[in-house]
C-alpha cells in the first residue's frame, strides 16, 4: 500500500467527495443503501456514486428502471422499515412524476405518525444549467422544495461541504434533499469551477445542516449565494476589492431550514444586501433572504437587490441562456448600484 502520510493537501471534486461520504457511511452502517438510474455500474452520470457497486455489491447499490415513481416510493417504505436509503433523482427537473412520494409521503411520515415512524432518506439530485441542456434539464427548483415543510434541503458549493453535508444528511432522521450543482461537479463536460475542488479530509466529519457560512468577511456589502452562485459572489467580491469595496460573502449551504440569523447579522454589519440565486426569481430563495432581513428591522443603506433567473423557461441557445443566468458581472453591477445608492 502507498504511504499515506502526505495526503493532507489531497483535493476532491464534489462528485468524488459525495461518493467518498456515501462509501464511508455504507461501511459504518449496513442499513445504508443506494438506488437510482445508472448509479451502480456507471457510477452515476455525474460521478457521485463511483466505486460503490464494487465495494458493496448489487444488493446495496441498485440500478433501477426508469421509474422515479417506483424507486423513490420504495425508498420511503424502506426508510419506514428502518433502512437508510439514498436515492438519486438524476435531474431535479424530473420531480413531477415522483413528487407525491416526496412531499406527501416522505415529508409527512413523521408528522402523521406522531413521531413514531421517521423517514431517514436522502434524495440526491442534480440542479442547474449553463451548459446548453435546455429547459427540462437545467432548472434549480430550490424554492419548490424549500417551500414544503417536513424536508431539509442542502446544496454544497465545494467538495469539503459536500462530504460533510452528505454524512449529516444520511444520519439525519428526516428526509433530506441533497442538491448538487452540475457546474460544480468537476465533470469536464459540464464546465469546471476550480473553487469547488478543495482539500477534503479522509476522516469522518459532518457539516451541520441549517448553518450558513461567512466565507469571506467584509464591511461594505453582503453578498449571499448558494451552490454555483456562491462562486459568482466570490469572483465579484475579489473584483470589488480592487475598487476599494469590501464585500462579505455568505454561502447559505442549507436552503431549508434557512439560516436567517447569519444573513441578518451580516446585513446589520454592512447595511447593504445582494442575494444571488439561479432559480426562478418569483417566490424564490433570494426573495426569502431579503424578506428575512427586512422583517428583522435591519436598516439598510440602499434598497436590497436580488439577482435570479427571470420567470421564463431556461433557454436552450447558449447566447440566450447565459444572458439570463446570474454571473459575476451582474453581481458586480449590483454592487456598484448599492454603493452608489448609499451616497
Amino acid at each position: 500500500m502507498a504511504d499515506k502520510t502526505v495526503t493532507s493537501t489531497r483535493k476532491l471534486t464534489i462528485a468524488k467527495s459525495m461518493a467518498e461520504a456515501i462509501s464511508q457511511e455504507m461501511g459504518r452502517d449496513e442499513s445504508v443503501l443506494v438506488m437510482g438510474e445508472d448509479i451502480a455500474k456507471l457510477g452515476g452520470v455525474f460521478g457521485n456514486t463511483g466505486g460503490l457497486l464494487d465495494a458493496y455489491g448489487p444488493e446495496r447499490v441498485r440500478d433501477t428502471p426508469i421509474s422515479e415513481t417506483g424507486f423513490i416510493g420504495a425508498a420511503v417504505g424502506m426508510a419506514a422499515a428502518g433502512m437508510r436509503p439514498i436515492v438519486e433523482l438524476m435531474f431535479v427537473d424530473f420531480f413531477g412524476v415522483c413528487m407525491d412520494a416526496i412531499y406527501n409521503l416522505a415529508a409527512k411520515q413523521s408528522y402523521f405518525s406522531g413521531g413514531r415512524v421517521a423517514c431517514p432518506m436522502v434524495l440526491m439530485t442534480s440542479v442547474g444549467g449553463g451548459y446548453g441542456d435546455a429547459g427540462q434539464h437545467s432548472q434549480c427548483l430550490y424554492a419548490t422544495f424549500a417551500h414544503l415543510p417536513g424536508m431539509k434541503v442542502v446544496i454544497p458549493s465545494n467538495a469539503y461541504d459536500a462530504k460533510g453535508l452528505m454524512l449529516a444528511a444520511i444520519r439525519d432522521p428526516n428526509p433530506v434533499i441533497f442538491m448538487y450543482h452540475k457546474a460544480l461537479q468537476g465533470m469536464g463536460w459540464l464546465g469546471t469551477v476550480p473553487g469547488s475542488i478543495v482539500p477534503v479530509p479522509q476522516e469522518d466529519y459532518e457539516v451541520p445542516i441549517g448553518a450558513a457560512r461567512v466565507v469571506r468577511e467584509g464591511s461594505d456589502v453582503s453578498l449571499v449565494g448558494l451552490g454555483a452562485t456562491l462562486h459568482h459572489c466570490l469572483d465579484a467580491a475579489a473584483s470589488a476589492d480592487n475598487d476599494g469595496i469590501s464585500a462579505e460573502v455568505i454561502d447559505l449551504r442549507t436552503i431549508a431550514p434557512l439560516d436567517r440569523a447569519t444573513v441578518i447579522a451580516s446585513a446589520r454589519k454592512t447595511g447593504r444586501l445582494i442575494a444571488v440565486d439561479d432559480d426562478y426569481m418569483t417566490c424564490g430563495v433570494a426573495g426569502e433572504v431579503i424578506a428575512s432581513v427586512c422583517e428583522s428591522g435591519t436598516k439598510l443603506k440602499a434598497p436590497p437587490i436580488r439577482i435570479a433567473h427571470p420567470d421564463i423557461p431556461i433557454p436552450f441557445s447558449p447566447a440566450m441562456e447565459h444572458f439570463v443566468l446570474p454571473n459575476q458581472d451582474k453581481v458586480k453591477a449590483a454592487i456598484k448600484s448599492v454603493m452608489e445608492a448609499a451616497r
Partner: peptide
C-alpha cells in the same frame, strides 16, 4: 478536467 494536488505538493504512490 482537474489536477487534485498543487504543483510542488508531496504525493504518495497510488494517490
Amino acid at each position: 478536467s482537474t489536477w487534485l494536488f498543487e504543483d510542488g505538493d508531496a504525493v504518495s504512490q497510488g494517490d
